[in-house]
Structures are given as C-alpha cells and as structure tokens.
Design a protein around this nucleic acid. Structure first.
Lengths: 144, 144
DNA sequence: GGCTGTCGTAACCATTACTGTTACGACAGT
DNA sequence: ACTGTCGTAACAGTAATGGTTACGACAGCC
C-alpha cells in the first residue's frame, strides 16, 4: 500500500510540543521538532501547516516565533490528525471504469464502495478512540 | 496514503471467475478478466499469481489454459485477498530513527507501534467479516 | 529603524510503488 | 507440429513521499 509516516510524524510533533510546553518552555520551533524526529524542518512545517488548517495548532511568526497547541491533547484524537494529513480513501477503485456491458464490471464499483465505506467508518471509529494524551502517556511509559 | 486498486481488482477477478464458472463455462483467461476490469492481462496475471500463492486460485497452462477457484467464494474473505496482495503495514514509522536522547524520540515508536497494531487488528477483523460471496451478491444486486 | 530568528512556500531531486505495455519463452492440449 | 495461454522480465509513465535549498514575509527586540 506504500504506507507513509505522516500520521506518525504528526503525532510525534504534537506530543513534543505539548511536553515542551508542560516543562515551562515557550513555543516550539520546527527546527527543534525536526531534530527530535530526525527529519527536515520543512517537513515539519508542512505537516504542522496541515494541522493548523484543521485547527489543532497555531503558529506565530517573527522573532521568537514557533508552534503551540490550540487545545489540550486529551481533546485531540488520532482521527483529527488522520483527517488533517491523509486526504484520500483507503482503497481505490479501478483506474479506468470497468466494462459496463459486463455484469461484474457494472456492479463491482457500487458494491466495493459500499463495503469500503463500512470499513473506513470502523477505522475512523478506532482512530477516534485514541487521544493524543493517550499517545503521550504511552510515549512516557517506555522503559528506560 | 496513495491508495491503490489492488484489492478492488483482485475482488473483481474472483467474482468474475466465479460467475463465469457458475454459468457453465470452463476456466477463465486473464484476457477475459482484463477486458471486464478494463486493464491489461498482465496486470491480472500478476495479481492472480499472488492469489495463487495464497491458495485462493489455481492456473492451468497450455492450450485451453486459464484460472479457476480452489474453493467456494463463501469461504474466502476480503482479509484473505488483502493479505495476499497488500504486504506492508497500514502506517509507517519514521524513515530515520528519531533522536534517542529525546524523551519523545525515544518512546514514540513503541507507543505508535502498539496503537497501530490494535488498529490493524480491527481492520483485519472487519475485512474478515466480508466474504467474496457477499461481494458477488452485492455486485449482482446493482440496479439496472 | 534596523537586526534577527522563524515561519511560509516554492522549487527541485531521489526514491518508491503502481499501472500499463511489449515481448518472448514455457507449457499442454489437440 | 500447431495453437492459445500462462509466467515473467523489462521498460516507461505517473504519482506520492520525503529531503533539501533558497528566499521572501513577518514580528519582536535592541
């Protein structure tokens, strides 16, 4: 399926920002987050930009600029993040429309669409059951 | 996520083979299936090859060759097909290992892995709840 | 008012996966 | 021997992802 790391990195960034603020620091910079996630600041800015579009974080520009959360981690779920960074559906239909003269070709798309819809709904429910607070708790629970 | 159509095409092929056989014809050729799915026969052969590896179909070579099912559609689930054609996990970890000196960088991977595991388990259960017989029934239920 | 640090974003590249296509050998039934 | 189909390699086109550089925009601070 060619899985990507967008949800992982986004969760990482949110957990990092929150922990940083809980420790009394100011706003978090993409540079710092990128250093923790071992990637490039631009990658972080792109991802956080999408989270900002979803209202999960906000950014300040100018000197002393950076990122901060708009609400508590406990009120943010993985579904919020998923919807912000993963636009498309999980499974795709045929690239070219199948043969409409064939019974299977005619009925396959509505059939699969209905099935996929149910599956994605379940996935969303599952993602909605995990808050970013849960994520941070699990992160801090890692044995040293 | 860059969704692909492999599961869709594989289900299409299985439904087509089964319906073809129910109508009293012999084995199905990749050429015929490709025509219904509006794609290239090689694409079908590649996909069915993976299904053969999973024991869902078998192929005969030589003249009068083609594909047939090894068991009833009712005993085949979308999970069987999914596992045959989609190897990797749904969500990926960081490309480069995160900063192990950072608390978040240290704990994020085990945390996300645990969460993803549960989610994938739910997805599998959902896929296992749909048989290819269900798919064919839905296909034939499409209004003309 | 200028300096400085950070965001916002464009541009480009490398890698990877998927899909489509051509080609051709292998094989088995007639 | 002929024929039709599979099995598979090889290649191209497209798209998504992730990394990188670059630079303008912006806001706080001296």
């Amino acid at each position: 399926m060619s899985a990507n790391s967008r949800l992982t990195i986004a969760a990482h960034a949110l957990a990092w920002i929150s922990l940083y603020q809980r420790r009394g620091h100011g706003v978090a910079t993409s540079e710092q987050i990128a250093s923790s996630a071992n990637t490039n600041p631009v990658v972080i800015r792109r991802l956080l930009g999408e989270l900002r579009g979803a209202g999960l974080v906000e950014s300040r520009r100018g000197a002393g600029a950076g990122w901060s959360l708009t609400r508590e981690l406990g009120s943010m779920t993985l579904l919020d993040v998923y919807e912000a960074v993963e636009p498309g559906p999980l499974f795709a239909m045929h690239r070219a429309t199948p043969d409409q003269e064939c019974v299977v070709g005619y009925g396959i798309q509505p059939a699969m669409q209905g099935i996929y819809e149910g599956i994605e709904q379940t996935l969303r429910r599952e993602l909605a059951g995990v808050t970013l607070e849960d994520v941070l708790r699990d992160v801090l629970a890692a044995p040293r």
